[in-house]
């Protein structure tokens, strides 16, 4: 139900950024409704100006993530519903989003929802900008240097699983299957 104009709470003095973070913590990811956009780590900053203008800085998970517009609209709607009239969204690309920013609570919720959370360290690209030579760059793409991933089944906990497909229903997921309970499951890729 959309709140009518009358039910919108007028902007109150004394709202702090922490309050806005808490409200954003109630905005769900449109594709994985059990976790919030704060759990996902895509809210990077909240600024509240003296005149009441609120600027929320978000970063995309993937360049082509089709949910970004929906997320931006959901943030605006949620803050409007809490009485903030002037909401501005800012997109930030650098530093690039990583699954390391996902909260532990968020990872636990993913697990409970049947999606295996990221299982290893992200691809290390930290040295590239600093000017590591071709060797450093090649390590990231070499077939032999890839560690074997152990992804635990979110249904039965078995670590006896194997990859079915490098891509799943969304760019952020891969498909695995459990060799013990035989259930297929989504795995949230390290990124």
């Amino acid at each position: 139900m959309t709140p009518s104009r009358e039910t919108v709470i007028p902007a109150k003095a004394g709202i702090h950024a922490e309050q806005i973070w808490a409200w954003l913590g109630e905005v769900s990811d449109p594709e994985i409704p059990v976790i919030s956009i704060v759990d996902l780590g895509i809210v990077r900053d909240v600024q509240l100006a003296a005149d009441g203008a609120c600027t929320v800085t978000i970063t995309p998970t993937y360049s082509g993530c089709p949910a970004m517009q929906v997320i931006a609209d959901a943030i605006t709607d949620a803050l409007h519903a809490h009485g903030l009239q002037d909401v501005r969204l800012q997109n930030q690309l650098s530093p690039a989003w990583t699954t390391d920013w996902m909260s532990e609570a968020g990872k636990a919720k993913l697990q409970g929802y049947g999606i295996a959370p990221p299982a290893q360290q992200v691809i290390d690209i930290s040295g590239l900008r600093a000017g590591v030579g071709a060797d450093g760059a090649l390590a990231a793409i070499s077939r032999r240097a890839q560690p074997r991933l152990t992804v635990a089944c979110p249904n039965c906990g078995s670590r006896h699983t194997e990859i079915t497909s490098q891509f799943g229903s969304t760019p952020c997921k891969a498909l695995y299957k459990c060799l013990d309970c035989r259930e297929p499951f989504d795995y949230f890729k390290c990124h």
Binding site: P60, Y62, S63, L93, S94, P95, A96, W97, T98, V122, I123, I125, L128, R129, A140, I141, R143, Q146, Q166, P171, K189, H191
Partner: peptide, 12 residues
């Protein structure tokens, strides 16, 4: 920087 991890995954 935003594209690099995607592109790395593609090449692998």
């Amino acid at each position: 920087e935003k594209s690099l991890k995607e592109v790395t995954y593609h090449l692998r």
